[in-house]
């Protein structure tokens, strides 16, 4: 399943990719991030703490105008993301002044 993923500037710079990329992944947060890290190894550890596997505190996941950050990593993503009409958005939380 192809998922559209929108990345913040820091991570685009790191991965050397466009603002939006496509990954073939199971339609869950975990599936998307696993696939993203496989496709762009430079992103390994940037979204989840390598030691705990948990989402980093200042990383947020949005889609379809909803904050999915606190959903289970194995929850199914919204239908619009699965259908490809909406991207899965990875955001650096608003911080830093």
């Amino acid at each position: 399943m192809t998922i559209r993923v929108a990345l913040p500037t820091h991570l685009r710079q790191l991965a050397g990719c466009d603002k939006e990329v496509r990954v073939d992944a199971p339609p869950t947060q975990r599936g998307v991030i696993d696939a993203l890290e496989q496709q762009y190894p430079a992103l390994h550890g940037t979204l989840r703490d390598p030691a705990t596997g948990r989402r980093r505190s200042f990383v947020r996941f949005y889609a379809c105008e909803q904050d999915l950050s606190h959903e289970s990593p194995d929850s199914t993503l919204p239908a619009a993301v699965i259908e490809g009409t909406e991207p899965f958005r990875i955001i650096g939380a608003m911080a830093g002044g």
Binding site: H10, L14, H44, G45, T46, P50, A51, R56, G92
Partner: peptide, 28 residues
């Protein structure tokens, strides 16, 4: 590193012109 995305280690093999990510797992 950043407060958002954690720690990276980057390596250059051409004197700092280009860089690639290497390992960043510092698990105790």
């Amino acid at each position: 590193s950043t407060g958002w995305f954690g720690q990276m280690i980057q390596r250059s093999d051409d004197g700092g012109r280009t860089w690639d990510a290497v390992g960043n797992d510092f698990s105790y």
